[in-house]
């Protein structure tokens, strides 16, 4: 089977994000960009399914500016087989991403699309679910374990209060949660090999998708700051302050 894995280029997980002074967004100039961490988990899971003989081809897709090809190369160096870059300058929202991925899925015919549960930039947590809806496929979101069993996927989902197990008919969309796996680092030979793997380029227009945004961003501002408080001497002082100053216990 084929597996499609979308990978998003986002501000690196360890970078402290700064709001622009003119409140139009966050500072992206000279900021380290990386693959969205949940997407790394998706790529890793696809590779594990390939290693287990369940899958025979992994296609990594990224949508956005030219530099998204670097993100695709990272997926290729981890073990994906080929890439598709959907070139688009400017923001693209989850609904448009889902529409683009649907068109690619119609062309490529994957049995499984493995999507990160959310991107750590806009924190929307929508794309996988929207894609499943547009394709008319079943979905297993926030998964911490999957087993492909014939024409079904058995998935364990991270839900409020614990875990839930469902079975979903193939083809389907999976969205990955943190505990699904630990993504591998690409080895140097694999990074070299990845340079020779093919990346096709296309565009939203080629795919017949209108990527214009529906949500107008009026402003982006700093969150309210907390003032740091006081250090207490010892445990007795702490309990006294909680009882008599803060009155929370």
């Amino acid at each position: 089977m084929k597996i499609l894995v979308p990978v998003k280029r986002v501000i690196d997980y360890n970078v402290k994000v700064r709001v622009k002074a003119d409140q139009t967004g966050v500072e992206l100039a000279n900021v380290k960009m990386s693959m969205n961490p949940f997407d790394e988990i998706s790529v890793e899971q696809a590779i594990r399914l390939k290693e287990a003989g369940v899958c025979d081809e992994i296609i990594a897709v990224s949508i956005g500016v030219q530099q998204c090809q670097e993100t695709i190369r990272t997926a290729l160096a981890m073990g994906a087989d080929r890439g598709i870059h959907v070139l688009h300058d400017g923001d693209v929202e989850p609904l448009a991403v889902a529409k683009i991925l649907k068109e690619l899925a119609d062309k490529e015919g994957p049995s499984l699309i493995i999507v990160g549960k959310q991107a750590i930039d806009d924190d929307s947590n929508q794309t996988g679910q929207m894609l499943a809806a547009l394709l008319g496929w079943g979905q297993a979101t926030f998964v911490s374990d999957i087993q492909v069993e014939g024409e079904q996927v058995k998935a364990t989902r991270e839900v409020d209060g614990g875990l839930e197990t469902i079975s979903v008919k193939l083809p389907s969309v999976i969205t990955t949660d943190l505990r699904l796996n630990e993504p591998r680092y690409a080895s140097l030979p694999n990074i070299m090999k990845a340079k020779k793997k093919p990346i096709d380029q296309t565009s939203p227009a080629d795919l017949g998708v209108d990527p214009s945004v529906r949500l107008e961003i009026l402003k982006v501002s700093e969150p309210p700051q907390r003032e740091s408080g006081v250090k207490v001497e010892d445990v007795a002082d702490l309990v006294d302050k909680l009882r008599n100053t803060a009155k929370v216990i």
Partner: peptide, 28 residues
Amino acid sequence: QQVSEISEVIDAETFVRPIYAGNAMATV
């Protein structure tokens, strides 16, 4: 296009939501 996890209602079509793990607040 869904609006996820709003933290404030400004009016019937305008909302505030945290982005970047709450390190910025977007009014959309």
